Computed example of a mutant assay.
Amino acid sequence: MSKVLELDQIKAAGTARTKEDAIAEAAEILVAAGAVTPEYLGFMKAREELTSTFMGNFLAIPHGTNEGKDTILSSALSFVRYADPIDWDGNEVRFVVGIAGKDGGHMDTLAAVATIFSDNDEVQKLVDASSEDELLALLSELNNA
């Protein structure tokens, strides 16, 4: 079974300053990983228009709509951390986890992300991590979901 999160899918210092740019940054990583086609970004934007993907505790999880499932080539995550919070519909977001789930395979991964981010100590470790390597180590259980 392949891993949904590899080192090159983690960005410790995201450059986006807006929600829209953060969604695009997450999508670019998924495209570069070969998990989605470039068209997936449009489905991620459409999902965000339907309902905010802000999850609380500085986390947003943008993902595509069901109509975009044909643009998903394999299940994968992208993980981007921001030094300065992004305004996500009035909420502060420091972490954007882009998700592409092939054949419904993302539900266990979503649950694992939610578990990590429900623990304030774990979130603080992610804030304090000094590198992509350290972030991957903290997020390694996502590859077991």
Rank of each mutant, 00 (worst) to 15 (best):
S52F: 15
K11M: 03
L30I: 06
S118N: 13
K69Y: 00
A137W: 03
A137N: 06
G104W: 11
I72Y: 01
S78L: 10
A26I: 10
E25W: 07
V96C: 13
S78T: 04
G14D: 10
V80Y: 00
E49A: 11
F58P: 00
T71N: 13
A12M: 04
A76E: 03
G90Y: 01
V113K: 07
L41I: 08
W88P: 09
L142W: 12
A129T: 06
V96N: 01
T115P: 01
H106Q: 12
S75F: 06
K69F: 00
N120H: 10
S75M: 06
L77D: 07
A22Q: 08
G34H: 15
T65G: 09
K3W: 09
G34T: 14
A129I: 00
L59D: 03
V36S: 08
S131G: 01
V36K: 15
Q9F: 05
L110N: 06
G64E: 14
L41K: 10
N144T: 14
E92I: 00
K125A: 01
N120P: 00
A35G: 00
L7S: 06
A13H: 15
T18H: 11
I99W: 04
E134G: 03
A22F: 08
T71Q: 15
I10Y: 08
L30C: 01
F58L: 11
A16W: 14
D87L: 03
A114I: 07
E20F: 02
M107S: 10
Y82T: 06
D128M: 06
L135H: 09
N57Q: 10
I99H: 02
N57D: 11
L50N: 07
A46C: 02
D121L: 02
Q124Y: 02
G34D: 15
I23Q: 05
K102M: 03
I10Q: 11
K11H: 01
A112F: 01
H63Q: 13
G56S: 13
A137Q: 09
A60W: 14
